[in-house]
Structures are given as structure tokens and as C-alpha cells.
Design a binder for these strands. Sequence first.
RNA 1: GUGGGUAUAGCUCAAUUGGUUAGAGCAUUGGUUUGUGGAACCAAGGGUUACGGGUUCAAGUCCCGUUAUCCACCCCA
Length: 430
Amino acid sequence: MENKLSTSPYKGTTDTYPEDMLTNNYIFDTWKSVAQRFGFEEYDTPLIEETALYIAKSGDEIASTQLYNFVDKGGREIAIRPEMTPSLARMIAAKKNDLTLPLKWFNIGKYYRYEKPQRGRRREFIQLNIDILGIPTLEAELEIFQYILAVMEEFKAPKETYEIRVNSRYLLDYLFEEILRLSEEKKAKVGRAIDNYTKLGKEAFVEYLKELELTEKQINSILEFLNSTLEDLKKIADKSDGAKQLIELFAKAEELGLTNIRFEPSIMRGLAYYTGTVIEMFDIGSKENPRALFGGGRYDDLLSMFGQEELPAFGIGWGDTTTRDYLETYGLIPETKTDTKVFLPLFDIKLYAYIQKIAKGLRTKGINTETQLTAIKFGNQLKYASKKNIPWVMIIGEDEINAKKVQLKNMETGEQNLVTLEEAIETIKS
RNA sequence: GUGGGUAUAGCUCAAUUGGUUAGAGCAUUGGUUUGUGGAACCAAGGGUUACGGGUUCAAGUCCCGUUAUCCACCCCA
């Protein structure tokens, strides 16, 4: 082994330099401000949980291979959170009688999964979780749809580049149980194949179903199902709750004028705990981003793991990595500017205390102010401010102090005026 | 976990099918210009060629291993 420490971050993680942080914050601030606009409240949970919380809920695969877990010094089995939902369920179960329903909660936080990193997928990632709890009807879905579309509008995403694909687990249940009459084991395999339908292509898909020993008739039923439209659902609406709900959901969405939403029979969302509507959003304007930007759905038996009665819930997990890739693909990341508003150069170290006093005054007025700390050549000080994209430079030397004024320079236009400090503050703030 | 591609300066890439002291552009720092940035010119710093081993008179170049990264599979809460 080498003696020197590596400068690269741990596999699947990324260092975020200030420049990249501006991009991240653009995404997170958008998620957050739009959520607040809809009346969602922010909450948080610990990064670590008892491993049992994840084993109780998820399949073996997740707990055994993709979970970062360890034993703490007290012998407890601990895991770093790979998702938010179990923690959210715990929080709600713990105080259920004290919480006023419905809850509209969101969180933006880090998660860790032991995965093989590739485009759109890292071991460390940040995700927005936004959920509505306590609304059993489709108005929960519609609220989240409206939130999503508001965020996409805020991102200035072109309408033709994204699509929310919607399906219902109840509809899939109807297919598996009433039409195909599959065993539990085959349900899982066929479900996964359906999820991969678009990727596999029809031929490979049919080939795989044959391998599973499905009959000709069953395979045709599946293909017919995958081609079905909302119109087709009307024919089975009296037999399938899923079909009925989807018809109602799209009717209401139309009434609200919602766009970029489409019924897609191949959306599955794993096999874990979803109970009704399932949704995913995809980039449909390019081939760069094959992964879903977010996924989510309805999970009405959220609290069952704590032995409590049902609480209807609908929510999504929206990943930072796929979102950044999407925004980059369409050039939607705004030119990053510093948050600093004004730079104060320093001509002589004797003026240091004086300049600091001015800076303190500016900061008190809410103006983000950076000062020069060593009296280097003035040209280089301007160069520094210019490189950091600071919009204003307030020049104060002996001459200005004697005149009881300041030189305020606009770094974009180069324009410069001798004004009073008060006038300068006005200009910077406007 | 399985399979494949890649690895040379902070970034993008050169380096005669194994041959002297591994180069360039951009970026960084300084100077031309001691109170006026963006341009131009000049200069400087920056490399154990990812790491370890092997073949050879000679390895950035060929071989093996490790690590990282990208892509696909698996999975995707």
C-alpha cells in the first residue's frame, strides 16, 4: 500500500467546489422555494438509523448489499440512511395523534447506497423527498403534479423535453391476478421485465417471457396491455380500481390544465410498498439521460411496520444527480454569480481598520462585502474582484477619506462615480 | 456482484508502431502598468506519466495485478 493519502474522494462521492455549490444551491433553492409556495413544511431526520428499520421494510437485496451498515461501540446494528421513507414513517408513527393531517412535508438531504457508480447514479447523493400524508384521494397526486410542473417551469425546462409517466399498481395487480393469474414468483419476474420493456425492445421482451414459460395467450395479453391507452382503460374501469383511478386522475389533471403527464403501462417502480399511483419523470428530448429524474407513488400502508393503522400517503424522491445532468443537457443552469455584492480594495495597510469599519457598516445594511486583506498592487485587486464576478467595487483611499466620499465602480460597465457612502449603499441595493 | 473501455500538469490533449532532459493550449502566479480589471506580450511555478510488479541494453509506450473513472448488466427503496 502507498503511504501518501489519495487526493480523490471516496468512490462514488464528489467534492463540491464553491463554483459547483452555486449550481447545487440553484437546484435546491428552487425545490425548496416552490415547496414553500405550496405550503409544504421542511423536516429532517438523522443520517444514521438502526439497521432494523430498513430490513423491516425493504427486500433482502437492499439490506444485504446496498446498505452502508456497521456495528456501533455499544453493539447496535446501525445503517446510514439509503432513503427517507422509513425515517419519515417513524417520525409520524411516534407522534401520530399529535399531528394535524394532512401533512405536507419535504426534506433535502444526503443519502448513501453501496452501488456501482455510473451516469446519474452515485454512492452519495442528495434527494428531495416531498410527501403528502393523510389524503386518500387523488387530490394528493394532483398537488404533487402541480408542484413538479411549477418546479420545471422555474427551471425554464422546455415542455417538449420532459414527461411524467403515470401508472397504477392496482392496474398491474389486475393484469397479474385477473388476466394472467401468475404465481407470486412469476409476478416479480414479469414485473421487472415490464419495467424494462422500453429498454429491452419487443423481441427480447417476448423472448424473455417465453423463457419464463408464459403461454402464447399470456404474452399477447401483456403486449396488448403495454399498448393500452386511457381509452382502453375505460373498457375495464368497472373491473379494475386501478383503471378507474387513472381515468379519474387524468380527467382531473385535464381540468386543471396540467401538461406533460402521460399514462404509461410499463411504469412499475420496483416491487416494494407502493399501493396505487406510481410515477416517474424522464428526459424525452435527448438520449443523454436514460435514468428517471424522480420516482414516487402512493404508499398507504406506510405505518404498518410500526403496527399502526393505515395512513394514506403520496410522495416522490427527486435526485440531484439526474436533475443536474438534465439541466446541463439543455443548458438550463444559469451563469453562476457570486453572492458577494461589493469589494473594498486596500491601498495601504494603515487604512485597514478604517476599511473594516466601512465593511462592517455595509454588512449591517445587509450588503455582502468582501475586503482586500493585504495592500497589493491595485490593478491586481481589481483583477481579483473581476474574476470573482463581484458586481461593485467601492474605492476608498486618502483622497476619498478627505473628500468624505467614495468611488463606486460598476464592474460590468466600468463606470465610476464619486458619491457619498449613503448614495453608494442606495445604488448597490437597488 | 459480472463484463468491457480508459488512466500523461488543475483542465483538454501531444510525445516517430520501445530510444536523450515527457511538450502545447487553456487555467494559475508574477511582470510590462507603484490608484483602475477584462486584451496583448514576456516570464515563472506546476509531472514519481494513477499505484505496484514484470519483460528489455532501454518502458509514458509491451505484459500482470491493484485502484479510480466511464459504459453496460444486476438492482434501483
